[in-house]
């Protein structure tokens, strides 16, 4: 195991001089690129679902961040601002790519539990604990299920559950309220759970 795996997930390495970067220093900028590339790449790749596209959006994200550094207001972390740029670019690009496997809004809705008079209707599957043990195959199923989530839900699961970015920061990145982040991530988790029922129950 490399030491990178133990790295704190919510706080990526802050190994760059922000003031120097903001005044246009190339070395500070490159330090930031070194520290942020891998994680941001993985986030973007989950949105666009294509390695080459993710690579080129990552490059464009850094380029735009450097050019637009004058508009960074220090109201958030620099990386929060950077992620907002990356995610916006990724969303623009994803429209050009095929999304045949992605669930339609109706299909997604059908995966949510239904309630009548406060009680859930229909059977609720219960997962078998021993299914958790077949790790590799299971994780492939989970990856596939995440890929099928509609874009907004895939993004919020990537940021909140996979990258473990705290809810308030996800709210800032996406420009929505914390309550809206929770509603979205909740619906995404419920859909994922339902998609995995077949495998887990």
């Amino acid at each position: 195991m490399s030491s990178r795996q133990e790295q704190s997930t919510s706080e990526p390495p802050a190994g760059f001089d922000l003031s120097a970067l903001l005044s246009g220093d190339h070395k500070a900028f490159e330090d930031m690129v070194r520290g942020e590339s891998d994680r941001l790449y993985n986030v973007i790749r989950r949105i666009v679902r294509d390695d080459d596209e993710a690579r080129s959006i990552l490059q464009e994200t850094f380029l735009q961040a450097f050019k637009r550094r004058g508009s960074f207001r220090r109201e958030s972390k620099f990386t929060t601002w950077l992620y907002a740029i990356g995610i916006n670019l990724a969303r623009g690009a994803v429209r050009k790519l095929s999304r045949s496997a992605v669930l339609t809004a109706e299909e997604f809705e059908r995966l949510q539990p239904q309630f009548v008079d406060g009680h859930v209707t229909g059977p609720v599957a219960q997962w078998k604990p021993d299914r958790m043990l077949e790790r590799q195959e299971l994780l492939d199923q989970v990856r596939e299920a995440i890929e099928r989530l509609p874009e907004d839900y895939r993004i919020v699961v990537t940021l909140r559950d996979i990258e473990e970015i705290p809810t308030p920061e996800v709210a800032t990145i996406l420009g929505i309220s914390e309550g809206a982040v929770r509603v979205r991530v909740h619906r995404a988790r419920q859909a994922l759970k339902k998609l995995l029922d077949e495998y887990m129950a």
Binding site: V33, D38, R55, Q59, L63, V142, D161, R189, L192, L196
Partner: peptide
């Protein structure tokens, strides 16, 4: 529901392509 969150977390990949940083810096 909690297992679902754990499973998503477990799909996190650490393996960005090794040449990613060098390539990105070159482009920039």
């Amino acid at each position: 529901y909690e297992s679902t969150v754990d499973l998503s977390r477990a799909t996190r990949v650490q393996n960005a392509p090794p040449e990613l940083v060098a390539e990105t810096l070159e482009f920039l």
